[in-house]
């Protein structure tokens, strides 16, 4: 009898083996409290050494939106999109949520090596907790956005009721994004260096501060490809619901639902496949 047979006949299980997919999902779900608490604590720790503490969660997006409003408002001049401030704020806040999930998701394994190296738990909890953290920080921004829109548009429409659905779809998509980024960065640290550039490029091509339809209107075939940019889809759909003068098309709804279903599935499978590799000292 070999040692392996000896072990299995006594009911011992191989340690460190990646659990089957659905068992893995169940384990993640069972320990969701850990992800929730980790995101809360990380959030507190981020601002713990500043005087203003949690107020930064509101101050930062306000400053960010103010800066972009000023700069793009001046640069774009008369070519500003219609209803500029609500247009810009929707773009900036939604984009910063998605790119934030991407960036912090990428660092979720590498940046928590203390946890990864000392405790065994399903590693997908780490990207999950960064998405929860971003989600918590999104609320003050949403509040700021809605207040801005209320002030500038002076109206409240029924379509606002669908806005939470967009947030939900966008969060689901971002979770998938965080999972993919987490594995890529954990296995190939070099990619981490490129993340700021990827985000910058995405910022400029997702119609955050300009109207894509206006710019690409002359080239319908480019536009047909461009429509698949998920950042653009979510921002444009939210604008359709909130900002006067923009409409949420069925096509946008379908694209957003597609991204929100597809990416988390791809992400979790992709992440789970490398579960045994995370936290190795190399």
């Amino acid at each position: 009898m070999t040692l392996a047979e000896f072990a299995t006949t006594h009911g011992l299980k191989r340690i460190g083996a990646r659990p089957p997919f659905f068992k893995y999902i169940a384990e993640v779900w069972q320990r969701r409290g850990f992800a929730w608490m980790l995101s809360n604590f990380t959030n507190q720790a981020t601002h713990a050494r500043t005087r203003l503490g949690g107020w930064w969660n509101i101050l930062l997006p306000t400053i960010q939106a103010g800066t972009y409003g000023l700069i793009f408002g001046l640069i774009l001049g008369s070519s500003r999109p219609h209803n500029f401030l609500p247009f810009l704020f929707t773009g900036v806040f939604l984009f910063s949520f998605m790119s934030g999930c991407f960036q912090s998701g990428a660092g979720s394994i590498t940046g928590n090596s203390g946890l990864v190296k000392s405790l065994t738990f399903p590693r997908a909890l780490l990207p999950l907790s960064t998405v929860i953290q971003q989600f918590i920080n999104l609320w003050p921004q949403i509040a700021l956005l809605l207040i801005t829109i209320l002030i500038t548009q002076q109206s409240l429409t029924v379509s606002w009721l669908l806005f939470p659905v967009v947030i939900l779809l966008m969060t689901s998509f971002s979770f998938g994004l965080a999972l993919v980024a987490a594995r890529l960065n954990a296995q190939l640290r070099d990619l981490g260096k490129l993340i700021p550039f990827v985000i910058r490029i995405a910022f400029y091509v997702s119609g955050v501060f300009f109207s894509v339809d206006k710019v690409l209107g002359k080239w319908p075939e480019v536009m047909a490809v461009f429509k698949f940019n998920p950042f653009y889809d979510f921002i444009e759909l939210a604008r359709g619901l909130l900002v006067n003068g923009y409409a949420p098309t069925t096509e946008l709804w379908l694209l957003c639902i597609g991204w929100a279903v597809l990416l988390p599935i791809v992400g979790i499978v992709f992440f789970w496949k490398a579960e045994e590799v995370y936290g190795r000292d190399d």
Binding site: K13, G16, E276, G279
Partner: peptide
């Protein structure tokens, strides 16, 4: 043994 490092060969079994 704790499952934090994967062995290149062999395996660890535990109850």
């Amino acid at each position: 043994v704790a499952g934090l490092t994967q062995p290149a060969n062999g395996a660890v079994y535990a109850s």
